[in-house]
C-alpha cells in the first residue's frame, strides 16, 4: 500500500515550481514591453497605417505556432525511441499550444489582409501551408480525444506528429510550384522587412522574444497540469483494484 505512486511522490510537486514563476513574471514583463513597443514606440507605417501594427502580433504568433509543432515532432520521436510518458505529455501539450497560437496568427493575418489586400485569406504558399499545419494538428488533437488515453494513443499520435511535420515542407513546395505554373493572384507581397526602420525591427524582435517566453510559460503550466491528470488516472485505476 505504501508503494503506491501517488503516496510515494512528494507533495512538493503540487506547488508551482520556480521555473513556472520565473517564466510567468518574465512573460508578463516581456509582453507588456512588447505591446508598448508595438503599439506606441514603433513608428506608423506610411502605406499601411495602423493596421501594420498587427504584424507584431501576427508573425510572432505564427512563429510560436511553428515552434510548438517542431516540439511536437521532436517529442514524438523521443516518445517512440524511449517510450517515456513525459515525451507524450510534452507532445500533446505543445500540439494544443500550437493550435492556439496558429489560430491567433491566422485570424490576425486575416484581419490585416482585409484592409491591406482587400481579401480575408490568400491561398498563397505561406497561407496554404499555415492552414494545412493548423488542420493537421487539429486532427491530431481530435485523434487523441477520440482514441482516449493509453499507450496506443501515444503511439498513434506520435506517428501522426512525425508524418504531419514532414508533410509541411512538401505542402509548401507543392503550393509554390503550383503558383508558378498557374497564374498567380496579383497581390502586393508583404516583404516590407527589408526596408523596415530600426524601431520597427526592434519592436518586432521584442515581440518575438516575448511570445516565445510566453509559450515556455504556458508549456510548463500545461505539462504540470497533464502530470496531475496522469496521476489522477493512475490513482483511479489503483483505487479500482481494491
Amino acid at each position: 500500500m505504501k508503494d503506491l505512486t501517488i503516496n510515494s511522490t512528494p507533495q512538493k510537486q503540487y506547488r508551482p515550481g520556480t521555473s513556472l514563476v520565473i517564466t510567468a513574471i518574465a512573460s508578463t514583463v516581456a509582453l507588456s514591453v512588447g505591446f508598448y513597443m508595438a503599439l506606441i514606440y514603433a513608428p506608423e507605417e506610411a502605406l499601411q497605417g495602423g493596421a501594420q501594427r498587427i504584424f507584431y502580433l501576427h508573425v510572432p504568433a505564427l512563429w510560436v505556432g511553428a515552434l510548438a509543432f517542431l516540439v511536437v515532432f521532436i517529442s514524438s520521436l523521443g516518445y517512440l525511441f524511449s517510450r517515456n510518458t513525459i515525451w507524450d505529455i510534452i507532445a500533446r501539450s505543445s500540439a494544443e499550444m500550437g493550435v492556439i497560437f496558429l489560430t491567433l496568427g491566422i485570424v490576425a493575418g486575416a484581419i490585416w489582409a482585409r484592409p491591406i489586400w482587400g481579401i480575408w485569406y490568400s491561398f498563397d504558399p505561406r497561407g496554404t501551408t499555415t492552414l494545412v499545419l493548423w488542420l493537421t494538428y487539429v486532427s491530431y488533437i481530435m485523434l487523441r480525444s477520440i482514441v482516449g488515453s493509453g499507450p496506443r494513443t501515444s503511439r498513434l499520435s506520435a506517428f501522426l506528429g512525425i508524418v504531419g511535420f514532414i508533410n509541411v515542407p512538401l505542402v509548401f513546395m507543392a503550393t509554390r510550384w503550383w503558383r508558378t505554373l498557374h497564374p498567380a493572384p496579383t497581390i502586393v507581397t508583404s516583404d516590407s522587412e527589408s526596408g523596415m526602420p530600426q524601431e520597427m525591427f526592434l519592436a518586432f524582435l521584442v515581440c518575438l522574444g516575448a511570445f516565445t517566453i510566453f509559450y515556455a510559460f504556458l508549456m510548463i503550466y500545461r505539462v504540470q497540469l497533464e502530470q496531475i491528470v496522469e496521476r489522477v488516472q493512475t490513482a483511479r485505476s489503483t483505487l479500482g483494484l481494491f
Binding site: Q52, R53, I54, L57, A108, I111, W112, P115
Partner: peptide
C-alpha cells in the same frame, strides 16, 4: 485603419 489592429489585439 488602426481599428483593425485594435480588433486583432
Amino acid at each position: 485603419n488602426a481599428i483593425f489592429a485594435f480588433i486583432a489585439y
